[in-house]
Design a protein around this nucleic acid. Structure first.
Lengths: 219, 219
DNA sequence: GTCTATAAAGTGATAGAC
DNA sequence: GTCTATCACTTTATAGAC
């Protein structure tokens, strides 16, 4: 009835589809289920989208663009790298626990895209964006904690994503909070080993090296 | 025609279903696609299985039971823990590269099971078996490398599975071999830190402690 | 633009001949 | 036991009234 615009209708359908996928999975996200969730008629779906495939494509692009990794809380300055990683990973896992469907959507849509030839390139971009989001956090953390990364920061971000993915999958499978905490302890130790202290306010105690100390990664 | 037994027919259908899922995904594994792959008629499917759901259940149970993690090569004694982990992880990733569909099946079937109420408990078991397989390798490695694990061996196995899962997902998404190698380097460093040296043939140099040295994890 | 009604194709499952 | 033929249902997509 309300005669809304096509772009608004598309946005509503994408949003509804996301809710259906989160709640019941990609397989359950039929056009009928989506329009029911959105409260509109089946014909409106095909007025807004040429086909279900086209809508799935936009859904995945939307998710890749807007829904990055579940909120990592920001770094608490004054702490060391180990406890910063620990609290960040705990915060991340809390986010997964609070809405398991939301994170499962990422994996499901990634698999759907990998199985769909025209969408097969999107997971690559999805992971690039994950890493970019984590990279931003890592650079902020390096400044706040007065450390520098022993590897290129994008590589450190890749390690973080590797661990969060593995952590998430295992938790989705067994919901073992205590075991996940032990993994986080290990991960925090391992990642903190990549944070090298940089003593900033006393450049006189040690003569400045003429060659860069290691691989330099700061931006 | 050949009037084969029900158990054989079930096995053939499971095998055919596995191939279809590996090649085209769970969504494409319709009863018709499976019987076409198996070279039999549609009615034979329902003679062997009460329903497609029942068949999917057996398929997942079969995978959970038989297809554990892609072959980790065995540990080379004489090397240190770091290079042992590195070569094992490389061997694992080689297995994924050689047959990406095979490993993707694990993730897809896990998600399918999580979305299916009657099968929702199977992923937990799947991960238990993963860890059990890795645990066996870790115990062999500890003996061959003359180390002991700083944590309960099942926890170490969980760390390994966390990393292999994360590694596999990222590689499936971007197929970036070089980046995967860098993750493996990091993972080998991190995991090797859990291998504590135990000096075996000189029990006289240090008086035997009356209390266990730390948490003991050997079986 | 939005709806109802329906077409066209695919799905799991079964009947019944052999 | 195994098959062909078919049912009952769901799916995406479209036609056509308003």
């Amino acid at each position: 009835m309300p005669r809304i615009s096509v772009v608004d209708r598309r946005a509503e359908l994408i949003s509804a589809a996301l809710r259906v996928v989160a709640a019941e999975g990609v397989a359950a996200a039929t056009t009928r289920a989506i329009v029911a969730e959105a409260g509109m008629s089946l014909a409106s779906f095909h007025y807004a989208f040429a086909s279900r495939d086209a809508m799935m494509r936009e859904l995945i692009e939307f998710v890749v663009e807007h829904e990055t990794i579940a909120a990592f809380p920001s770094i608490d300055p004054g702490s060391d790298a180990r406890s910063a990683f620990r609290s960040s990973l705990r915060g991340y896992l809390d986010g997964v626990r609070a809405d398991p469907g939301r994170e499962a959507v990422m994996f499901e849509l990634m698999q759907y895209a990998l199985r769909t030839p025209e969408l097969a390139a999107l997971p690559d971009e999805q992971y690039s964006r994950y890493r970019a989001a984590v990279t931003e956090l890592l650079e902020g953390a390096a400044a706040a904690l007065e450390v520098r990364w022993a590897l290129p920061v994008d590589d450190v971000a890749r390690m973080v994503v590797t661990i969060t993915d593995g952590l998430t999958l295992a938790w989705l499978a067994d919901r073992d909070d205590a075991a996940a905490d032990r993994v986080i302890e290990f991960a925090a130790d391992s990642l903190a080993a990549l944070a090298l202290p940089v003593t900033p306010p006393s450049p006189s105690t040690v003569p400045a090296p003429l060659s860069p100390p290691l691989k330099e990664t700061a931006t």
